[in-house]
């Protein structure tokens, strides 16, 4: 545990002295803010038209603007993090290998798991730090929303994001452990995430056995339930086990470095 904490602390320290974390977080918040604005304005427009229509024809179509706003926003955020997380994870091991500090870690009385977990949780913490400010949007919205904000949907959405982030960080750190080059790690991670994203689109409407399998494996698909306010244990387990696989693979990758090294 002490080893994990030591690695974790160093990792956190290094995030906040390098500009990359600030750039990624800044970019994330700008893009999120922009999308939040677009979603809100278009929803409000729609609800105004709907209201006018209901006044004309009688039947009032109740429109839950805050609920829809949250649902849409969560969907957008889940896509944005696919594109930004590679920047946070690409250097985690690649840099360490390039600087030669991997040699220090590997000759210290630390197990590979301690190294992997320390680094993993540090990256995940950074992800939470990145995500947290978006709660401000919701708090502001909650003060003016009519009907009130569906808090259940909000929290399940954030839980889903956290789990999704956990999987993506695990995959990203694994890819980073495979190469000495940050750029290669970044591009490869990005490519993998892009594939996950495209996969989700590609099989949306078909219904063969293959598409069922692909759909089941699609990371984003499992997120849809969360953004609708449904916390399904199957989804939680799906994400947790994927993250565990990523962490395990990273540990194997570090271990194999000893044998591959020439």
């Amino acid at each position: 545990m002490k080893g994990i904490i030591a690695v974790y602390r160093r990792e956190m320290g290094s995030y906040f002295v390098s500009p990359i974390a600030y750039i990624v977080i800044g970019l994330f918040l700008v893009v999120c803010g922009l999308f939040n604005y677009l979603i809100l304005t278009s929803l409000i427009e729609q609800s105004v038209t709907a209201q006018m229509r209901s006044m004309q024809f009688g039947a009032p179509p109740a429109m839950d603007v805050p609920g829809l706003a949250i649902q849409n926003f969560m969907g957008v955020v889940s896509s944005i993090i696919l594109f930004l997380l590679p920047m946070l994870t690409m250097g985690i091991y690649a840099e360490e290998r390039k600087r030669g500090t991997m040699e220090l870690l590997m000759t210290s009385p630390l197990t590979e798991f301690q190294i992997v977990l320390g680094k993993y949780f540090a990256a995940l913490t950074l992800f939470v730090v990145m995500l947290a400010p978006t709660l401000i949007y919701q708090i502001i919205m909650s003060r003016y929303a009519e009907p009130g904000i569906p808090w259940g949907v909000l929290w399940s959405g954030y839980l889903g994001l956290l789990l999704l982030g956990g999987v993506l960080v695990a995959l990203g750190t694994f890819i980073s452990s495979l190469t000495e080059s940050q750029i290669i790690a970044g591009v490869a991670t990005f490519a993998v995430f892009l594939l996950l994203w495209v996969l989700d689109f590609g099989v949306k409407d078909s219904s063969s056995t293959w598409s069922d399998i692909v759909q089941y494996l699609s990371i984003l698909r499992h997120y849809n339930d969360f953004s609708r306010g449904v916390i399904d244990t199957a989804n939680v387990i799906f994400y947790l086990s994927l993250a565990a696989v990523g962490i395990f693979l990273t540990q194997r990758s570090l271990d194999s470095m000893r044998w591959r090294r020439a």
Partner: peptide, 24 residues
């Protein structure tokens, strides 16, 4: 090692404290 395993963004004391910590 031949290339000192240093973290360029850390200061000397913080770095040595980190090493001491991971050495147990």
């Amino acid at each position: 090692p031949e290339n000192p395993p240093l973290y360029p963004d850390m200061d000397v004391q913080a770095y040595l404290e980190f090493v001491a910590r991971i050495k147990g």
